[in-house]
Amino acid sequence: MLRVEQLCKSFAGTTVVKKLSFEIGAGESFGLLGPNGAGKTTTIKMLVGALAPDSGSITLHGQSMHESPEIRRKLGVAPQSLSLYENLTGRENLVFFAKLYGLKGQELKTRVDWALDLADLVSRQKDLVATYSGGMQRRLNFACAVVHNPDLILLDEPTVGVDPQSRDHLFRSIEKAKSEGKTILYTTHYMEEAERLCDRIAIMDEGSILAVDTVANLIAKHGGAATITGELEEELKAQLQNDALVWDDCQFRLTSHEPVKAIAELAGSGLPFKALNIKQANLESVFFSLTGRTLRDA
């Protein structure tokens, strides 16, 4: 459905997107996971035609995004910043953006009512957006992106600065869109969000994609072994005979590709551990494995 090939973009001599290539199939939920400054928003801006790439191509249903503005009718975008008119009401915002996409008459009314319901803002639809909470504005920001029923929804860090309740509401809205067969491109620097919402994930750093695959495959390929941590009394340390253990005072760490078997062996020693934990590999480990940094450090 969406094909991106060899996309490049530089600002004042600094290359922020380097030969980016990926493909998203219809109905797929695709994530761009990377730290701030990885080039995710610049990529989104190029995808929607708001920024001209230095080189490379973007096609949607085989049509070039830059040569055919009409193709943008199939796109819905929720920008990272709250892109709303604060001195218009929630309903007026939705009506305005829906009209820009050619909706009118009964269809306009139906879609706006649907979007208000989706954003759980029916009771506040006549209030100015300036009076909304941050979470409500985020929900409206998302509703404005989908009010015209687009095929492809691009969500650029849609949960930034959102309270847990609104975040959960947004997740459910996105999952609903996904279940309706919409194609979703989701950028985030929160691995939990990417793991929950995305079928495939591209790990992005410094303008490049480092790896693309499903969550399970990424972890399997790049996540490394699981980590087992534990703690023993000082006088019992000598009774635990295992060369693979790395000790730090009374605490130890052990890496293993078969963590369940390893922990069973430790438990079988009969020693009274003060603590014994398994930490499975996750996207954080994948990112660490690929970049040598954690997502939070980056």
């Binding site: 035609g49 892109s83 709303l84 820009l100 050619g102």
Partner: peptide, 14 residues
């Protein structure tokens, strides 16, 4: 600054 212009760019118009 608010990003609404971005939405206008994205909409199907020149």
């Amino acid at each position: 600054k608010s990003g609404t212009l971005f939405r206008l760019y994205v909409a199907p118009q020149s």
